[in-house]
């Protein structure tokens, strides 16, 4: 089953999701919420790819979505390790606490 909707509607939803994630990244200070907002942004990019794939009826959009999925999984694995290190070293989840860059 598949429906036929204007592509711009799907792109509007993807843009709104992406911008909400962007607002979350800009406004939050807690690392966990930053990472969740990043997930939202990547998911929105995936939605745009699926919309493009559905427009032409080609599987390429779904393949790009799968590559984004692999990227998101890799990013989350490394970033959550960094979150654990941040919380062990500084005892907080505030991103601003790790702003010294002194090795």
């Amino acid at each position: 089953m598949a429906i036929s909707v204007p592509v711009e509607h799907v792109l509007y939803v993807a843009a709104l999701l992406f911008l909400m994630g962007l607002a979350g990244v800009l406004a939050r200070r807690n690392v966990m919420f930053l990472l969740m907002s990043l997930e939202v942004m990547m998911n929105a990019a995936g939605l745009a790819f699926i919309a493009a794939g559905a427009k032409w009826g080609q599987p390429d959009g779904q393949i790009m979505f799968m590559l984004i999925l692999a990227l998101a999984a890799a990013e989350v694995a490394v970033a959550l390790g960094l979150v654990l290190q941040l919380s062990r070293r500084y005892g907080t989840l505030d991103v601003d606490s790790a702003s010294e860059l002194s090795g």
Binding site: M1, A2, I3, S4, V5, P6, V7, E8, V10, L11, Y12, A15, A51, G53, A54, K55, W56, G57, Q58, P59, D60, Q62, I63, M66
Partner: peptide
């Protein structure tokens, strides 16, 4: 930018077989 594209999605299902073959 998006408002210009007035096309519709094809409404045709692209199943796992097609995706796997392309992948």
């Amino acid at each position: 930018v998006f408002a210009g594209s007035g096309d519709e999605t094809k409404g045709q299902e692209v199943g796992p077989k097609a995706v796997g073959a392309e992948l």
